[in-house]
Design a protein around this nucleic acid. Structure first.
Lengths: 335, 335
DNA sequence: CTGTTAGCGCCTTCAG
DNA sequence: CTGAAGGCGCTAACAG
């Protein structure tokens, strides 16, 4: 409630001096005594600068919006954690929007962008982001970072080491002697899906297997979608001995489908999934995964938004590299 | 970039008229033609009101901060989902802070509260919220809602049907014939822990079992803490045939401990946990849970903050009621 | 019924 | 070295 002028009065100086004391203006020369009096008044009156006034004056809000497909998804939550950590360091606060929440929240977001309330925008929820939001962000030139979501707009895109991850996962299966390896991919047409597909096919090709003989089905990165897609995969290809899943949640869904079909993991079918989750080792079959630098992706996104988005349009987060975490969902094929 | 004055000029009216057209002032009598001209100018110039200016003028920001212990925890994420849904309807946007993130983010939050940037505060991350934040929130009289987090401050507290949930879980075990039922509780001293403990003990008492003979250990609602606590529980009480877990994540941790100790679920030890998660049925042992209205709790929190916090200091979210979801982690004891 | 104006609280240039 | 003043964009009270 106290404002700058109140502090000034209490300390017997002008409001300009108070402002400069607060903002540590180096060019300000005042006696230590005066400075101390100002500090004391600030403390006594429990003063804090009005954020709206600062924002209005500086046109910087310190706010960054993060649009996630679904906060409940542990993979995305991990990105958010990284973003939080980085935001704290950069003096930013994070607004979180679920892209699934619908029109009202999209309108609210568009209003905030148009109204200059955001310093940056990080978009992960691909496909479902309102055009109004995107258009506004573009015209207001809000620093925008795309996370694996290749929308057709002029913004910086951060990607994970997708090809390497899928390659690692597939190669692990090949090393165990599997030859009939199916692929439960992510959403068709997405850039990262294509990269992972390339990794999968490269590993297959290197092992002398014609990728065209290896079946691929596509699935949203959700448990139920994974179950459905896996059923389709198994239906058309009952002789598979292993499956590479491009998302850990669809892998979990696949485990259900496998169970329903009476197939044991790993005895009948082996599974490897991209993205690790904290509960992977207490799943029905302790799931072998390839961990990706998700936390770091979140960090980098906020970092870029804060420091200014570079000219480079395509950035990779490749540290730490994709790491195979062996658990027990992979075995040697017995047919 | 366009401002009110620009629209006014383009439409040949004063800025006051534009403002009132936008805000749908009923007392404004203006010809349809004029109104249309204003609307057109708004569209043509892609105008959106400056949020900071509105906030400064009205001292309402439309922002509500949600402090979570850990976004990565699926239980809390569910609360956040509910909050999102409600925020969208009430024209609010959500700022998310992890209470674990540390001092920088606490300072940022305190600055926002002090600076009048928040319309409300929802606190779930118990225990770890900076005192400065709380003090500021109190003095600025920010509507504050506590979610199961009973801090010693004067704020509205929303609670879940804790006693009923623990009662239901325990009774389910009793119905299966268990008599030696241990309890893997949440953090000691918390109000909701005590309520659940009361439910656990009531069910035991009703079955003619002296609660004092039934062992209780406390644990943070995290996988690793659950593993550690469960080891302790088993160590001191090797003859338990069942365990009630007050949190699904500590239950998952317990499943690891049980596995490490060579105990089968449910053949050797049965488990029931409070809080359902989407992957409960694909865990090592498909986990029987008691689902709680977490989504609804998040909704209600934002609702209250938006509509004004009532005088009542203690509110319960009890719809839908706690629901037992039977899976296969419970069996009849064989000793 | 419409337009003018003051002021929300801050910061920064310019004058003293 | 310090203070006065204007303006960021909006809205509500008031004057015309």
């Amino acid at each position: 409630m106290a404002k700058l002028a109140d502090i000034a009065r209490a300390a017997g100086v002008s409001s300009a001096v108070v402002s400069r004391v607060i903002n540590e203006d180096r060019t300000l020369r005042v006696s230590e005594a005066t400075r101390a009096r100002v500090q004391k008044a600030i403390k006594d009156l429990d003063y804090a600068p009005n954020i709206a006034a600062q924002t209005l004056r500086s046109s910087k809000s310190g706010l960054v919006a993060v649009i996630l497909h679904d906060v409940t998804n542990p993979v995305y939550a991990e990105i958010l954690r990284g973003a939080q950590a980085s935001a704290a360091q950069n003096g930013k606060a994070l607004l979180v929007f679920d892209s699934a929440t619908g029109a009202e929240s999209a309108n609210r977001l568009a209003a905030m962008i148009g109204g200059g309330a955001l310093d940056g925008l990080v978009i992960q929820g691909a496909g479902e982001v309102s055009d109004l939001v995107l258009a506004r962000a573009a015209t207001r030139k809000i620093p925008t970072i795309l996370l694996q979501a290749d929308l057709d707009i002029d913004a910086c895109l951060i990607s994970l080491p997708d090809e390497a991850a899928a390659d690692t996962a597939t190669r692990h299966l090949l090393d165990h002697g599997h030859r009939r390896i199916g692929c439960l991919a992510t959403v068709e047409g997405m850039r990262f899906t294509e990269s992972r597909l390339a990794g999968y096919r490269r590993a297959l090709g290197d092992a002398g297997i014609d990728p065209r003989d290896s079946p691929v089905v596509f699935s949203a990165p959700e448990i139920e979608a994974g179950t459905e897609a896996c059923s389709r995969l198994l239906g058309g290809n009952p002789d598979l001995t292993a499956i590479v899943c491009f998302n850990v949640l669809s892998a979990i869904g696949a485990m259900k489908a496998l169970g329903d079909a009476g197939r044991q993991i790993p005895d009948d079918v082996s599974i490897v999934a991209v993205h690790d989750v904290p509960f992977a080792d207490v799943l029905k079959a302790p799931l072998t995964t390839v961990a990706m630098p998700l936390f770091e992706m979140g960090q980098k996104a906020i970092q870029l938004v804060s420091d200014g988005v570079p000219d480079t349009q395509l950035l990779a987060v490749d540290s730490p590299p994709p790491t195979l975490i062996q658990r027990r969902s992979v075995a040697t094929p017995n047919r």
